[in-house]
Amino acid sequence: MYQYEFSELFERIILPGLLDTIIMLLGSFVTCTLVGFTLALVLVTTDTHGLRPNRTVHEIVSTVISMLRSVPFIILAISIIPLTRLVAGTSIGVWAAVFAITFAGSPLIARLLESAFKEVNPSLIEAARSFGASDRQITFRVIVTESVPAVVSQMTLGVISLLGFTAVAGTIGAGGLGAVALTYGYQNFNDQIMYGTVAILVVMVIGIQLGGNALYRKLR
Rank of each mutant, 00 (worst) to 15 (best):
196 G>L: 05
155 M>K: 07
166 T>Q: 02
161 S>W: 04
61 V>T: 13
86 L>A: 13
89 G>M: 03
219 L>E: 05
88 A>I: 08
52 R>S: 08
26 L>Q: 01
163 L>E: 07
189 F>G: 00
63 T>F: 05
21 T>N: 10
159 V>P: 02
208 I>Y: 08
216 Y>V: 15
62 S>Y: 11
3 Q>P: 06
111 R>I: 01
119 E>C: 11
155 M>E: 07
27 G>T: 04
134 S>K: 13
154 Q>G: 00
113 L>A: 04
141 R>Q: 12
185 G>R: 06
3 Q>M: 15
65 I>W: 00
147 S>R: 10
173 G>H: 00
133 A>G: 08
172 I>M: 08
77 A>Y: 05
147 S>K: 06
175 G>S: 05
90 T>A: 15
215 L>V: 13
86 L>V: 11
183 T>C: 02
72 P>H: 12
17 G>Q: 10
191 D>L: 14
121 N>R: 11
76 L>N: 04
79 S>T: 12
28 S>K: 02
70 S>T: 13
127 A>K: 06
22 I>C: 03
194 M>Y: 10
30 V>E: 06
160 I>A: 10
114 E>V: 10
150 A>T: 01
163 L>Q: 02
162 L>R: 10
19 L>C: 09
198 V>S: 06
90 T>N: 14
114 E>M: 13
81 I>E: 03
183 T>D: 13
51 L>E: 11
93 G>K: 13
195 Y>G: 10
23 I>N: 01
25 L>C: 00
120 V>P: 05
206 I>V: 12
115 S>G: 11
130 S>I: 07
202 V>A: 11
171 T>F: 09
218 K>W: 12
151 V>S: 00
120 V>D: 06
33 T>K: 10
120 V>C: 05
202 V>L: 06
70 S>R: 07
191 D>A: 15
120 V>T: 09
178 G>Y: 04
11 E>A: 15
188 N>S: 06
208 I>S: 08
76 L>T: 10
27 G>A: 08
82 P>F: 10
217 R>M: 07
209 Q>Y: 04
26 L>E: 07
63 T>I: 06
143 I>A: 03
6 F>N: 12
175 G>E: 04
125 I>S: 07
128 A>M: 09
138 I>F: 03
121 N>Y: 08
122 P>N: 02
79 S>W: 12
185 G>W: 09
115 S>L: 06
19 L>I: 15
2 Y>V: 08
59 E>C: 11
25 L>V: 02
152 V>R: 09
192 Q>Y: 11
74 I>V: 12
145 T>R: 15
159 V>I: 15
156 T>H: 09
38 T>R: 06
219 L>M: 13
25 L>G: 00
56 T>V: 14
73 F>Y: 01
65 I>T: 10
22 I>Y: 03
122 P>F: 02
195 Y>I: 14
160 I>T: 12
204 M>W: 11
61 V>P: 05
42 V>I: 15
101 I>T: 01
103 F>N: 01
56 T>L: 07
30 V>I: 15
147 S>D: 04
27 G>I: 09
122 P>V: 01
66 S>N: 15
200 I>E: 04
10 F>L: 15
